[in-house]
Simulated scan of single mutants.
Amino acid sequence: MSTAHQLRITHIGGPTTLIEIGGWRLLTDPTFDPPGRRYTFGWGTSSRKVTGPAIPAADLGPIHAVLLSHDHHGDNLDDTGRALLSLAGTVLTTVPAARRLGPETRGLRAGQSTRLTHPGRPTIEVTATPCRHGPPLSGPIVGAVIGFALRWAGQQHGALWILGDTVLTRRVRQVATRIRVGTVLLHLGGVRFPITGPLRYSMTARRAAQLCAALRPHTAIPVHYEGWQHFQEPREVIERAFTAAPSPARDSIRWLPPGEPTTIDA
Score class of each variant (00 low, 15 high):
72 H>L: 14
55 I>A: 11
52 G>K: 04
99 R>Q: 11
33 D>E: 14
72 H>G: 11
24 W>Q: 11
40 T>H: 09
84 L>C: 12
95 V>P: 04
70 H>K: 05
72 H>E: 11
66 V>M: 07
94 T>I: 07
48 R>M: 11
98 A>I: 09
60 L>S: 07
90 T>E: 07
64 H>D: 15
74 G>W: 01
88 A>N: 05
95 V>R: 02
30 P>H: 13
53 P>I: 01
47 S>H: 06
101 L>T: 00
62 P>H: 13
98 A>M: 03
76 N>Q: 10
59 D>F: 06
42 G>V: 10
48 R>W: 02
96 P>T: 10
85 L>F: 00
68 L>R: 05
60 L>P: 14
61 G>H: 09
74 G>I: 02
59 D>T: 15
76 N>M: 05
78 D>I: 01
90 T>G: 00
62 P>S: 15
100 R>T: 10
32 F>E: 02
49 K>S: 12
29 D>Y: 05
31 T>N: 06
34 P>R: 08
79 D>V: 03
48 R>F: 01
64 H>A: 12
52 G>H: 06
47 S>Y: 01
49 K>D: 08
52 G>R: 05
69 S>F: 04
87 L>G: 04
40 T>Y: 06
50 V>E: 09
81 G>N: 04
73 H>P: 07
40 T>A: 14
40 T>V: 13
77 L>Y: 00
94 T>Q: 08
73 H>E: 12
99 R>F: 08
33 D>V: 02
38 R>D: 14
56 P>Q: 09
44 G>T: 13
76 N>E: 10
100 R>I: 09
85 L>K: 01
95 V>Q: 06
68 L>G: 08
71 D>L: 11
